[in-house]
Nucleic acid binder design. Structure first.
Length: 522
RNA sequence: AGAAUUAUAGCUUAAUGGUAAAGCAGUCCACUCAUAAUGGAUGGAUCAAAGUUCAAUUCUUUGUAGUUCUACCA
């Protein structure tokens, strides 16, 4: 599916759909939110650069008791409240050059209709029934707490760990989804499709859990008396549809459910490792029950730690994404997160590492451009003499081999990066980018153009600028701004994939050999 | 507390039971096309203990530490 290499100029356009989780906007965006959006953005941009019909959604999950209570506390209507919260996430996306195709909100009108429709389908097929939900309820918080978030006091009372409020075992009437009916089906799904969840560790973890633990039915509504801010259960104004259907159906809404457009046939969900259960248990079960095709894949990423430890306010090590972008710039942050992305574990953030990553961009990438744009060279002339230069052979066989290897590296860069990009392995793709940049810098060093006659001088800097040009076209998904600056500095107009080969563009270079106008500075 | 998973050089990663690889940082050398940049050379590590094995980073057990989940907070 993603692994086939297709000839460059005969790209088959296959629909591709990638999603982040939709974020609960009761707290400020953190580095994890940015990371999810960024991976999807890069993957989406790569697909588009490759000529694919691609679609990327992110958004906000806006119903629920916490939002309701927070809005009441501010004496603001909930809708107005979430309108302002959604803007916070949209602003983060805009600041970070996240180019989503749809920002979906669970309060969107078409989403409410889709949720109602899914609910009706599940009910008609007999998967929903009335039952009683029992749980630990705190009257003063108006919240049910899971067993893991309560403790027993010395006087025997059970209280919430978070708020200290007393909780009591309480029952209420809810609608339930027959999730327990799907345990065997889910196990079969996983065993038949080991690639459905990647990385493999998360697949193993979930499979073991499904096999060793019972699966209980799932409450999918809440009483309207308690939760006013939610989608009403069709035909029953005493109940509101709960998050498991409300939020998860966003992926269908974005694909125009119930028709379901072409993107749903090739859907990948990117999620954090703390919400595997919702996307890999509840969601496929709901889809099976409604007889809707499943997404193609769920990709699970780890968390960003700070200096090896979990970020927390009490530790004082929370990284504010907007702050680091302000300090270091959008593209360096994008580049750093992608360069250090590891899907099968947690990722480590430190400002020292970010600074070093940024320095490298200046020293090796931006500087490669400036080495070739110096006043002693003439790129425009070199490109006019392209045919002559391209036939020239160096006397030194080692140098000639280096030139040949560099040409080959430039020409295979797309294929190498593509293999990694389609698997969301941005770190490996970036290593390929660095490899070709390093080869070019080394070639310039070894060939010493400053000591040569015009013809060979021109050939050497031609290799340099061609490397920078092609690498910049291909790094656009990761660093949209800096690649734009480099291509501008080189006076390159043709920035599409068909020009990402050695010698494919001879129209650039006019007037670029002058001092200053660095693409990036320290 | 239980389960899963992770632990390699100052930092970030790699290695299918067979001589632990790389980038950055450090040290030394060279160079000036370029932004105190660039290139080369170089020293450096498998969390701890035990076991299995001709041979263990890798397999097994135990311990320590990090992360997540423990199933309707999301």
């Amino acid at each position: 599916m993603f692994k086939r290499t297709i000839p460059l100029l005969q790209r088959v356009s296959k629909p591709f759909y990638i999603t982040t989780p939709i974020f609960y906007p009761n707290a400020a965006p953190h580095l994890g939110h940015l990371y999810s959006m960024l991976l999807c953005d890069v993957r989406n941009r790569w697909a588009k650069l490759s000529g694919n019909d691609s679609f990327f959604t992110t958004g906000t999950d806006e119903h629920g008791l916490k939002i309701q209570l927070a809005a009441e506390a501010k004496n603001v209507p909930p809708k107005q409240f979430v309108d302002s919260l959604a803007l916070v996430f949209k602003d983060l996306a805009a600041t970070c050059s996240i180019d989503y195709d749809r920002f979906i909100r669970t309060t969107d009108e078409d989403h409410v209709k889709a949720v109602e429709q899914v609910w009706n389908t599940l009910q008609e097929k007999g998967w929903i029934y009335e039952g009683e939900h029992e749980g630990w309820y705190a009257i003063s918080d108006e919240t049910f707490y899971p067993r893991t978030q309560i403790k027993q006091e010395e006087d025997g009372k059970w209280v919430s760990i978070e708020s200290g409020s007393e909780v009591k075992l309480t029952k209420e009437k809810n609608y339930f989804f027959k999730l327990s009916e799907f345990r065997e089906k889910l196990i079969q799904l996983l065993e038949s499709n080991p690639q459905w969840i990647i990385p493999g560790q998360k697949y193993n973890e979930l499979l073991n859990e499904l096999k060793s633990q019972p699966l209980a039915d799932l409450s999918v509504s809440r009483p309207s008396a308690r939760l006013k801010w939610g989608i009403q259960v069709p035909g029953d104004d005493s109940q509101r549809i709960y998050v498991w259907i409300d939020a998860l159906v966003n992926y269908l809404t974005s694909c125009k459910y119930p028709e379901l457009n072409q993107y749903w046939s090739n859907a990948t969900h990117l999620i954090g490792k703390d919400i595997i259960r919702f996307h890999c248990v509840y969601w496929p079960a709901l889809l099976m029950a409604a007889e809707i095709p499943l997404p193609k894949q769920v990709v699970v990423h780890g968390h960003w730690l700070c200096e090896g430890s979990k970020m927390s306010k009490s530790k004082g090590n929370v990284v504010d994404p907007l702050q680091i972008i302000n300090d270091y710039g959008v593209d360096p942050v994008r580049f750093f997160l992608c360069e250090n992305s590891v899907l099968n574990g947690d990722n480590n953030f430190s400002v020292e590492s970010l600074q070093r990553s940024r320095d490298q961009l200046v020293d090796k990438y931006s500087n490669l451009v400036m080495r070739c744009c110096g006043k002693k060279f003439n790129v425009e002339r070199a490109l006019k003499e392209y045919d002559t230069l391209n036939e020239h052979q160096f006397e030194d066989p080692i140098l000639q081999q280096q030139l040949t290897n560099l040409k080959q590296s430039i020409n295979s860069l797309y294929d190498k990066m593509n293999t990694d990009m389609v698997q969301l392995n941005t770190a490996a793709a970036i290593q390929e980018f660095w490899s070709v940049i390093s080869d070019a810098n080394q070639f310039i060093q070894d060939s010493e153009p400053w000591k040569r006659e015009q013809l060979e001088k021109d050939l050497i800097i031609l290799m340099g600028v061609e490397t920078a040009r092609v690498a910049s076209i291909l790094i656009q998904p990761v660093m949209p701004e800096l690649s734009l600056k480099v291509l501008d500095r080189l006076n390159v107009v043709n920035r599409d994939l068909s020009h990402a080969k050695f010698g494919a563009d001879k129209s650039y270079g006019k007037g670029i050999n002058r001092a200053g106008d660095y693409p990036m500075t320290k």
